[in-house]
Every structure is written in C-alpha cells, then in structure tokens.
C-alpha cells in the first residue's frame, strides 16, 4: 500500500471516526464541567460554611489526584464496589439496578471523570472571579434596594463571567487534550484510533503527526470561539483587551 492510499483509505477515515468520538466526549464534559464549576465556585465563594467545606473537599480530591487514577477508578474500580453492594443488597431482596448502576460504560465513565475533574478546576476560576469583585459594587447594589438574588444575577454573575472567561477557556482547551486519556478505558477516540493504526501498520510518525494536527484544529476552533465570546462580552476597562 503506498503512502497516499494509506492516508486516504485508512488513516483519515479512522481518525475522522475517532474525531467524532472525541467530540462526543469533549462537548458534554466541557459543558457539564462549566456548569459544575459555576455551582461549586459560587458555593465556595458565597455559600454557607458547611457547603464551602464540602466543596473544598471535592476540589482538593479532584485536583489533588491524577486524572488517570480517577478515570480508571470510575471504570475499573466501581464494579468492585458494585459487587460488594450487591452482596449486601441482593439478599435483602432489592432489585438489581440499586447496585448495577455503578458499573459504567466506557463512555459514561469518561464523561463522568472528565466532567468532575474539569469542574473542580473551573470552580477555582469562578471562585477567584467572584472574590475579585470590589466590595463597593455590592454596596451600591444594596443601597439601591437589590435583594441578594437580584445582586447575584445583575452584578455578580455578569462581572464574574467576564473575569473567569480566560481561565475557563483555558481549562476547556486542556480538556480537549486530556480527553485522549479515554483510550485507557477502551474508547476508540482520536488517540485510541491513532494508537491502533500506528501499531498495526507500524507507521507511528504519520499517525501521531496527523493526530496532533487534528487536536491542533480542535483547539484552534475552541480558541476562535472563545475569542469571539470574549469580544462579544468585552467591556472597556474590565481588563480584557480586544483580540482577534
């Protein structure tokens, strides 16, 4: 098989399939990660003390352990927990789903792992953004008769969103690349496909080089979108220079 044919017949179709799988993992993980980050970040910045402690614990666990370990725990570790639960709940006459739900498919395990890890990092950016808002902004809102929730939606959220955008975007770009870890739980996404082809045809250079270009394209697309969003939300004097 000549090189050209290898590209058009084998490598590119396979990588396109892998790309689709990657996108299916990245998009929900990024969206849910931001959602969790916003909730956890707001809770850590402004929540009651017990909530802060719970959320701080979440962040320190998920930021403090390797993502590979987390991912393999979700996929390979949880079935063990499920079996243990089953040995207790089964004899009690409970239906099987009360422990079977812990056995995750590779796809669900990946999305759960990436979402929770990403959310922990996102919450740090959101928390920082909320804490950086000057006290006077809240005082002004109070003096105009804003309730706490009106202040949150009219002042805190729009300002924090702009301040956090840089960091959150950065985290999404990281996520695009660490989504490749999904190959460890048997998912045939971009890197998984590339890995298989490279060893089957013994052409690692071409395979990995082209895979790198695919990731570069994904990241460029995300960067472009984030720049567009930044420019749309840009407010003079809020520390975001016009780019792009």
């Amino acid at each position: 098989m000549d090189t050209w044919e290898f590209y058009t017949e084998k490598l590119i179709p396979a990588l396109n399939e892998g790309l689709w799988m990657s996108v299916l993992i990245i998009v929900p993980s990024a969206a849910l990660g931001v959602l969790i980050g916003v909730l956890a970040g707001a809770g850590r910045a402004a929540g009651p003390p017990w909530l802060r402690r719970v959320l701080d614990l979440y962040v320190s666990v998920f930021r403090g352990t390797p993502l590979v370990v987390q991912l393999t725990m979700w996929y390979y570790g949880l079935p063990g927990v499920s079996r243990f639960l089953g040995s207790i709940l089964g004899p009690m006459g409970l239906p099987e789903f009360t422990w079977r739900f812990l056995v995750l498919s590779p796809y669900v395990a990946s999305v759960v792992a990436f979402t929770l890890c990403s959310g922990a990092y996102q919450s740090e950016y959101i928390r920082g953004a909320i804490l950086s808002i000057r006290k006077g902004q809240f005082q002004a809102a109070k003096s105009l008769g804003f309730t706490d929730s009106q202040t949150f939606w009219s002042i805190t959220a729009p300002v924090a969103m702009r301040r956090a955008l840089h960091g959150c975007g950065n985290e999404i770009i990281y996520l695009i690349k660490y989504s490749s870890l999904a190959l460890l739980v048997t998912i045939q996404e971009l890197t998984g496909k590339s890995n298989a082809l490279a060893s089957f045809y013994f052409r690692p250079l071409e395979c990995y080089l082209l895979t790198a270009l695919y990731y570069l394209a994904l990241v460029s697309l995300a960067t472009f979108f984030l720049r567009w969003l930044e420019n749309r939300l840009r407010v003079p004097g809020m520390g975001m220079a016009k780019t792009g």
Binding site: A140, S143, G145
Partner: peptide, 30 residues
C-alpha cells in the same frame, strides 16, 4: 434601603454597564 439614595466617595458605578444601564438597572430589577 430602596427609599434612600447613597452617593459613595468612590462612585461604585457598576463597571460592566454603560452609564445609561447603570441608571436603568435598579429601575428594571428592583
């Protein structure tokens, strides 16, 4: 508080809103 207006030493305008929106936002939300 709504019945009383306060002018602060360092203005405390809402940084993310235009002058007009700064004036309008409490009317709209509150």
């Amino acid at each position: 508080r709504r019945e009383i207006g306060m002018i602060f030493q360092d203005f405390n305008l809402f940084d993310h809103l235009t002058a007009r929106d700064n004036v309008a936002i409490a009317l709209r939300k509150v």
